[in-house]
Amino acid sequence: MKKLLTASALMFGVMGTGVAQAAEEVNVYSYRQPFLIEPMLDQFTKETGIKVNVKFAKKGMAEKVEQEGEYSPADVLLTVDISRLMELVNKDLVQPVDSNIIDENVPAQYRDGEDRWFALTTRSRAVYSSRDRVGQLGADFDYMDLAKPEFKGKICTRSGKHPYNVSLIASIIANHGEAEAKEWLEGVKANLARKPQGNDRAQVKAISEGLCDVSLGNSYYLGKMLADEKQIPWAESVYLNYPGQKADGTHVNISGMAMAKYSPNKENAQKLMEYLTSDAAQKMYAEVNYEEPVKPGVASSELVASWGEYTADDLPLETIADNYATAMKLLDEVKFDL
């Protein structure tokens, strides 16, 4: 445990542990990459005069905040995926935020019923298909189809236990029940072209190389690949498909925010959180991260819009989170990653 906490501290860097803070500052711990959020934070400072101090990390946020306890300087926590937000909640590391502004900007489906976390963007769990060998999958295509015999030996995916896939499986459990979800997992495993490995972009690369024909992947990776000269051929080898348009809808997850339990700058923290749900901030987010604004009425980027419209699964993310443990259990039972 000591080694884990030490590593976590190194990842976040050294930050003062005293609770005394400048009156016009706010401290952010973030899993989001700097280029994704710094434009918004800079604009917030310009408009309010409140300085934003940010610590970025790839992992270790919950452990770091837990280690710091009541002396933590953290005010706002930014992360991705409902599972990581719920980890903060379950470890009692956040506090409710009573804000009519946030409640008006963030649909109830994408915020906690007790106001402990709120979405900032949504990202769909899409299916990529080979342009040459498969084509567009069509309006009738559903996640459940991936277990059908016609996809035998044609599917690539990252680990089933990655949060992006666990959340999808949890949504299938919520929509179809545990027994049907297990049967689906067994069918998908039987249809895999190779053992689960790599990240979402690696699956598209595999499609471009002819190793498989379809893959699960978050939609924003298409934008990321198109922005990388070496990966453009991967992106151009596939179509992006939104499953479930005549069934439950496409599964979406979120990036989100929460106020740290011992926030020393609560007033400034709430101002920042409210700003991040505003039209201006949501528009900036949409332009740089290839995700979709959570606030209704704020347009996606031109590129994301070109991928087509879709209907999202209307399951509250809290319901998906409630099925997370069952999803992990089913993955073990079918030995999905083995």
Rank of each mutant, 00 (worst) to 15 (best):
F151I: 09
F151N: 10
K152Y: 04
K152R: 12
K152D: 12
K152G: 06
G153L: 04
G153M: 03
G153Q: 04
G153E: 06
G153V: 04
I155P: 00
I155G: 00
I155K: 00
I155Y: 00
C156F: 07
C156G: 12
C156E: 02
C156R: 08
T157I: 05
R158D: 02
R158K: 14
S159R: 14
S159H: 05
S159T: 12
G160S: 10
G160A: 14
G160M: 14
K161D: 13
K161S: 13
H162M: 07
H162A: 10
H162E: 03
P163F: 09
P163T: 14
Y164M: 05
Y164Q: 06
N165Y: 05
N165Q: 13
V166P: 00
V166Q: 03
V166D: 00
S167T: 11
L168F: 13
I169K: 01
I169F: 15
I169S: 03
A170M: 08
A170Q: 02
A170E: 05
A170G: 07
A170V: 08
A170I: 06
S171F: 05
S171H: 05
I172Q: 06
I172K: 00
I172R: 01
I173R: 09
I173S: 13
A174I: 10
A174H: 09
A174K: 15
N175I: 01
H176S: 08
H176W: 06
G177A: 08
E178G: 03
E178Y: 03
A179L: 10
A179K: 15
E180L: 04
E180F: 02
A181K: 02
A181S: 15
K182M: 10
K182G: 05
K182Y: 11
K182P: 08
E183C: 05
E183H: 04
W184K: 00
W184D: 09
W184A: 02
W184I: 01
L185V: 13
L185W: 02
E186D: 10
E186H: 06
E186T: 14
E186W: 07
E186F: 04
G187E: 06
G187N: 09
G187Y: 01
V188Q: 08
V188N: 10
V188D: 07
V188R: 03
K189I: 10
K189A: 10
A190R: 07
A190N: 12
A190H: 08
A190F: 08
N191Q: 08
N191F: 07
N191K: 08
L192Y: 03
L192S: 04
L192R: 01
A193T: 04
A193C: 07
A193Y: 02
A193S: 11
R194V: 03
K195S: 15
K195Q: 15
K195D: 13
K195N: 15
P196F: 07
P196D: 09
P196R: 10
P196H: 11
Q197Y: 14
Q197T: 14
G198C: 13
G198E: 06
G198I: 13
G198P: 14
N199G: 11
N199P: 05
N199E: 15
D200Q: 08
D200A: 13
D200L: 03
A202H: 14
Q203A: 04
Q203K: 05
Q203D: 01
V204F: 11
V204E: 08
K205I: 04
K205H: 09
K205L: 06
